[in-house]
Design a protein around this nucleic acid. Structure first.
Lengths: 229, 229
DNA sequence: ACAATAGTGTCTGTGAGACAGTATCGA
DNA sequence: TCGATACTGTCTCACAGACACTATTGT
């Protein structure tokens, strides 16, 4: 790099914006907060935190997820870095977007200190509506939505949206929601057969045939650092 | 975000690191510079620039490419953002890696002002060797190499490594280099048939049958902002 | 004619898609 | 027995892989 004197270059604020996705009522939802300060007071925004000087980006993302949801150790991955000059009208902020996936059962709310509330927002409805979203967050959400649809095809990303043990109909519903189309049962089962392993457990109590519970194979959900392109 | 007073948060240096790839002598190469200052004096490093307060990340990448190669308008895309705390021993630098692809014929050298030289380095050799690379740049290169191999399968990224008009044997060689394996002619041609269109031109002068020149279809190489996941 | 590379025809196996059928629970 | 959902068998078709074959240049 040309010139290494730090004082020669203006430094920038770097934030991590979080897209915490879950599935509720057969819909893809994500966690958003309502801003209580200008700009965009009263408008929905993605939760986020500033990156501290002595924490990595992944650390900042994990911290943000913890502060926002109370959860530790859930799946997340870096999505993209948004660096438009006018993203935030007050100051230049580079935002590294992170996407987290968590089954609804694990998700507990925990409103941030400076926000009047946090909700699960229907991703599809938000993207199709004309409702304003703070900053460039709608664009970020649109990109995340697109990436999710892609990655479900060739990775095990869908497993992060179901519990550790799940039925195949449950898993299929997650695939269908992410892909935005319905799938044939028999074909779906053949497709995921290599990614899962049976458990001894079955569902019970429903007024129909019980469903076997499965687990994702270890190697399918294991995260390889930056290798989730 | 919790608290918007900029002064409350330390700002960070943000750099763009560039991976300019090309194909030379049937090998994947990338542009690297030899550092002439500590740390890592005499060691190979990726070229990079600091992001200025009033330029976007893409602008910074384009500027870096221009400064390093003299080229304008070549294909590039954001790769990943590396935010380890100890990446640079002197100070905290967040680095947004960008990958650029250019056919060798367009690539002209233009050594940076503060570097003693710039070369095309064989990507495979570099990754397999024990030779040191500055900072975490070897990890960045390894990720880029992996991403290239992936994207060649389902995108038109290979077209950016051949000239605007190319023969199918040429294109096939690029695919083989990126994939790291040889392909069957007939199958390859069927695979890319939908991505290309014939021209009127043929090669000539070689001591064998001439080869038809093709062009990539517009929609295959058109870049959709952040949608190159 | 020959060397060298460009380009084609076709067989096969695999896997996705479509659909019809069977299985097993509670009520 | 019935409604509801879980699960399976199998046909078809598109496509990737493999390989043998033909085509066209310069020397």
């Amino acid at each position: 790099m040309e010139g290494y004197d730090p004082s020669k270059y203006e430094k920038l604020s770097v934030a991590v914006d979080l897209l915490v996705f879950t599935v509720e009522d057969n819909r893809l939802k994500l966690l958003m907060i309502e801003r209580d300060e200008d700009p965009f007071a009263g408008i929905l925004a993605l939760p986020g935190v500033f990156v501290r000087v002595n924490e990595t980006l992944d650390d900042a993302a994990a911290r943000g997820i913890r502060e926002e949801t109370g959860l530790e150790g859930i799946y997340f991955e870096q999505l993209y870095t948004f660096g438009g000059v006018e993203r935030d009208p007050r100051m230049r902020i580079i935002s590294v977007a992170y996407m987290a996936l968590v089954p609804l059962e694990q998700l507990v709310f925990h409103a941030g200190a400076r926000t009047s509330g946090a909700w699960l927002v229907d991703a599809e409805e938000l993207l199709e509506s004309e409702d304003p979203v703070a900053f460039d967050h709608k664009e970020i959400i649109r990109y995340a939505r697109w990436r999710l649809a892609n990655k479900v095809e060739y990775t095990g990303i869908a497993f992060h949206l179901v519990e550790r043990e799940f039925t195949l109909p449950e898993l299929q519903r997650v695939y269908e929601i992410l892909l935005g189309k319905s799938l044939y049962k028999a074909n779906f089962r053949k497709k995921v057969a290599g990614l899962i392993e049976e458990t001894e457990h079955m569902t019970s109590g429903d007024a129909h045939r019980p469903s076997r519970l499965y687990r994702a194979k270890e190697e399918v959900v294991r995260r390889r650092k930056t290798e989730d392109g």
